[in-house]
Amino acid sequence: MSTPIKVLIVEDDPLICKRYQMILSKDEEIEFVGRAASGYEGTMLAALNKPDVILMDIELEDKQAGLRATSEILNYMPDIKIVMLTVCETDETVFRAFELGATNYLLKNMPAESILEAVKDAYYDRPSLHSNIAGKITKEFKRIKTTEDSLLHNFYIFSQLTPTELEVLELLMKDYTRQEICKLRHVEPSTLKSQMNSILKKFNKSSAAEIVSLLRELHIPEILSQRKTKQ
């Protein structure tokens, strides 16, 4: 028989913990090595027992304790696989758990076979995300990637703007009208029109409103403001 998979349970509800312990003990491939009731205790037992897999409740002594313990454990023991447990599945906790390096994510009321499967899949590095969670993760990561690409692309365009064009764009993002911009900058409408055409061409957009909307969505006005503050 091969070496059993050592599993630590970090769960503050004794009844839930007992159920999980019973489920694990019935499988010959798994060895239950301990139970912790808090994030701090879980971190200590992880260091002492060196489990292969941890079943980690998200809400322990507080709503973020499981996530903090996960971060701490994986920072010092990155080979441990952590499967998050929760009674309430929300997008925010799903994304945060995977961002920290969790391997999987289970609702506490899952049947015994799903719990055992999650432990073994985590140990053997087999993908086992439930389809609804996998869809959320894929969609969110795709959105983040698109935003990052767009942000980098538009910062590149910013680097191509002249100081005058950048000043005009910043005034547009502050909701000044073209007439007001002409007065503030002491330029003729024809001059501003020429500058605007150059900006539109660089961003490959047909209107200033499109550019302003895009830059606000990417929080570029805030980034520019922070940059000026630091200078």
Rank of each mutant, 00 (worst) to 15 (best):
40 Y>T: 15
105 Y>F: 14
28 E>N: 14
206 S>L: 14
69 A>F: 00
81 K>H: 05
201 K>V: 13
222 E>P: 10
93 T>F: 12
218 L>P: 08
99 E>G: 13
148 E>P: 07
128 S>I: 09
1 M>I: 13
183 K>G: 01
136 K>F: 05
218 L>M: 06
15 L>M: 10
177 T>C: 09
91 D>P: 10
36 A>Y: 06
13 D>T: 12
212 V>G: 03
79 D>K: 13
191 T>I: 05
51 P>G: 07
76 Y>S: 14
132 N>H: 08
16 I>V: 14
171 L>E: 07
14 P>I: 04
78 P>F: 03
165 E>T: 04
129 L>Q: 05
184 L>F: 09
83 V>M: 00
141 F>W: 11
15 L>F: 08
187 V>Y: 05
167 E>M: 07
97 A>W: 02
98 F>G: 09
150 S>L: 09
35 R>A: 10
28 E>I: 08
111 P>R: 01
191 T>H: 12
169 L>K: 00
20 Y>V: 07
18 K>G: 09
137 I>V: 03
48 L>A: 14
107 L>K: 05
227 R>T: 11
99 E>P: 01
202 K>N: 00
222 E>C: 08
1 M>T: 12
89 E>H: 09
139 K>C: 10
102 A>K: 02
127 P>K: 13
51 P>Y: 01
148 E>R: 15
200 L>G: 03
79 D>N: 04
192 L>F: 11
196 M>A: 05
47 A>P: 09
128 S>V: 09
215 L>C: 02
20 Y>E: 02
131 S>K: 13
212 V>L: 04
160 Q>F: 06
216 R>S: 04
140 E>D: 13
62 D>Y: 08
22 M>D: 14
52 D>S: 06
84 M>G: 01
164 T>K: 12
196 M>T: 06
225 S>P: 10
196 M>S: 07
11 E>W: 04
211 I>N: 00
172 L>W: 10
56 M>Y: 10
27 D>K: 01
226 Q>K: 04
52 D>H: 12
8 L>I: 01
27 D>I: 10
112 A>G: 07
60 L>F: 00
179 Q>V: 15
226 Q>M: 06
